[in-house]
């Protein structure tokens, strides 16, 4: 166990080193800080002196070590646009993203487990077939398009005139398929509840929750099909196993077998894939937040790119890297702990 832990930690540190070198290389190669600091009229000799004084002529590794030392202390420099420490800017935008991810995760868990389990128990029922078909359609729709369709249907509203208005059934179908709209689709709204520090929450007021609904559904839509398919596949495998047959023979009620005995073992691979998918989720928050103008980290990152706000870009990359590395390490550790068959040290059997 100790060997496994050390191996994982070494891996995590290695990954962080790679990320920090990449982030530093970006900072080093983009733009000239001297040009940002002094005016046009400053002569070249002055510029060179300033460059020397700031240590910009030092070799790459010396500058990198200085950068890494500051980064470990949380100092990523000042954002050009916001004119405050980059880490503070990120801390201000983090709660919005976390709440969005929380909302999406809630939807994924609440829907994927029952649907996945049901379609494994009754693989041939029409409902299961429908969900399997819907899930491949779901995988094929990019997240920003789901978001746009949601806005069109629930925010702007849609008047359907596809069926003949004159007939009773046509009018009824048109009325049923048309939507009023009115759901908020822009930003976090005004009803934010201040919790502490930088955390203003959408979760504790009706207005705030209404703003959270559409972005959360959009973000969840991209992961949901994957999880439904995964849970179904794992559950199908588990239901074939000896211990489930034994539990059946023992006379345990089917629901207890499905949701207590079988689901436990189904969840193992789901946790691993789920952990890895957190990384994917961060990428999709950039898209979701762009569509809904949700003021989280993703939108901030995109704005930073458009403004060439390099300290903020670098800080974002480092923070996202830390989030990835921590979640991946934790997922691996949990997996190693709960599944005794995992070869902890990775040695061939």
């Amino acid at each position: 166990m100790i060997a496994f832990l050390t191996k994982r930690l070494m891996h995590a540190i290695l990954v962080m080193l790679v990320i920090s070198v990449i982030a530093f290389a970006i900072q080093d190669n983009l733009g000239d800080p001297i040009q940002q600091m002094v005016g046009q009229s400053v002569p070249e000799s002055e510029r060179e002196a300033l460059r020397e004084r700031l240590g910009l002529n030092d070799p790459f590794h010396v500058q990198y070590l200085r950068f890494a030392g500051n980064a470990i202390q949380g100092d990523f420099g000042y954002s050009y646009f916001y004119r405050e420490p980059a880490l503070d800017v990120i801390a201000r935008h983090l709660p919005a993203t976390l709440e969005l991810v929380f909302g999406a995760t809630l939807i994924i868990v609440l829907l994927s487990v029952p649907i996945g389990v049901y379609s494994a128990i009754k693989p041939r029922s029409p409902i299961s077939r429908f969900f399997m078909g819907a899930s491949i359609v779901g995988i094929s729709v990019p997240v920003f398009l789901t978001a746009i369709v949601l806005i069109q249907i629930f925010s702007i509203g849609m008047k359907v005139t596809l069926f003949p208005e004159g007939t009773a059934w046509g009018g009824w179908l048109n009325a049923t398929l048309s939507t009023q709209g009115g759901m908020p689709s822009f930003g976090r709204g005004q009803d934010l509840v201040h919790v502490f520090g930088y955390w203003d929450s959408n979760l504790f007021s009706a207005g705030g929750l209404r703003h959270l609904v559409l972005p959360s559904i959009a973000l969840a839509s991209i992961m949901l099909p994957l999880f439904i398919r995964l849970i179904r596949a794992e559950m199908l495998e588990v239901l074939q196993s000896e211990y489930v047959k034994f539990a059946r023979a023992k006379g345990i009620s089917p629901w207890r077998i499905y949701f207590v005995h079988a689901l436990k073992n189904t969840m193992l691979p789901v946790i691993t894939v789920g952990g890895v998918q957190i990384g994917t989720m961060v990428a999709y928050t950039i898209l979701t937040e762009t569509v809904f103008q949700w003021p989280g980290m993703g939108l901030m990152f995109l704005d930073a790119i458009n403004r060439a706000d390099i300290p903020l870009i670098v800080a974002y990359l480092m923070i996202v890297g830390v989030i990835f590395v921590i979640t991946n390490t934790i997922v691996d550790l949990i997996y190693g702990l709960v599944n005794p068959t995992v070869k902890l040290t990775g040695k061939p059997a």
């Binding site: 290695l14 990954v15 790679v18 970006i26 190669n29 983009l30 890895v276 998918q277 990384g279 994917t280 961060v282 990428a283 999709y284 950039i286 790119i305 060439a308 390099i310 870009i313 990359l317 996202v320 890297g321 990835f324 590395v325 991946n328």
Partner: peptide, 26 residues
């Protein structure tokens, strides 16, 4: 394979966005 693992642990879309952003800025 370590390189592949590292890259896969960030989603491919994330890698593409970051590389795209940096290349465009450069």
């Amino acid at each position: 394979m370590r390189l592949a693992d590292i890259q896969l642990s960030f989603s491919t879309l994330m890698v593409a966005i970051v590389v795209g952003a940096v290349v465009k800025a450069t």
